[in-house]
Amino acid sequence: MKAMELRHLQRKAIEIRRLTVDEITHLGIGHVGGSMSVVEVLVLLYYRHMNIDPANPRWEERDKFVMSKGHAGPALYSILADRGFFPREMLLTLNQGGTNLPSHCDMNRTPGIDMTTGSLGQGLSAAVGMALGHRLQALPGRIFALIGDGDTNEGQTWEAAMSAAMYGLDNLVAFTDYNKMQIDGPIEAIMKTDNLIDRWRSFGWFTQQVEGHDFAALDAALERALAEKGRPSMIIADTIKGKDLPGIEGDYKNHNMPLTAEDAERAYARFRELEAKLEEVPA
């Protein structure tokens, strides 16, 4: 990836975090932590790799994305609004009565959402079905999925993992948002997933593990995954829950939390610092 594009994606990630903080702060509460940890993976997909058309969200030949950790909807909504699937003002309706932006992703309400999710464990199975459906109908679109630590606890995820390998679905690339936190605490204290990379490899997936907030590393892993033939790919992205929110980042209690105007101000100050730092580096 060229330095210019890397810089563009880095700026975009800050912008998406800012929009997401706006979105959640407007209501005052939401799934903050997991929305912040997924930003780089989503930005990489939606601004560099995915073949989509905001003017035609149901375009048959598009790539599809399944947000299995459906509660990270707010981050994806920021991206879809920024990409032009719907007006930015709509972001401020998050979770209000009658909104088209519910907490968890809904394909029937939100333009650009490809699968309804929210009950953890179900997303990867749907992604497997989509990959099979595309292969059977010779549709060019690739299937991307994002699962979380909670998904990793669910047995259905591993059923889906077995079947994706069995069917040799090389049109499926999944990411794990490995922020190592779950609602009740660090995964170390609740449900360990040691040697996660070995688990996916042993299930027959082409598996890589990279720094999940580093665009260059993520992009290299994704390019390598897309070139892999005959098996599905998993990219375990080491991330930080609540990334770039001062006083919130890294605290497991940030899963679903109030976000005050003061929290938002601290976040905006941090985003300005990060933007200034980007300007210092010569392109």
Partner: peptide
């Protein structure tokens, strides 16, 4: 044969895969 998927003893996954297949128009 190409339109038949025996997913093994994993009924939850079978229904999830079916949903995904349906999302592609099948």
């Amino acid at each position: 044969p190409e339109r038949t998927f025996d997913v093994g003893v994993a009924e939850a996954n079978m229904v999830g895969i079916s949903a995904g297949l349906s999302a592609t128009g099948l």
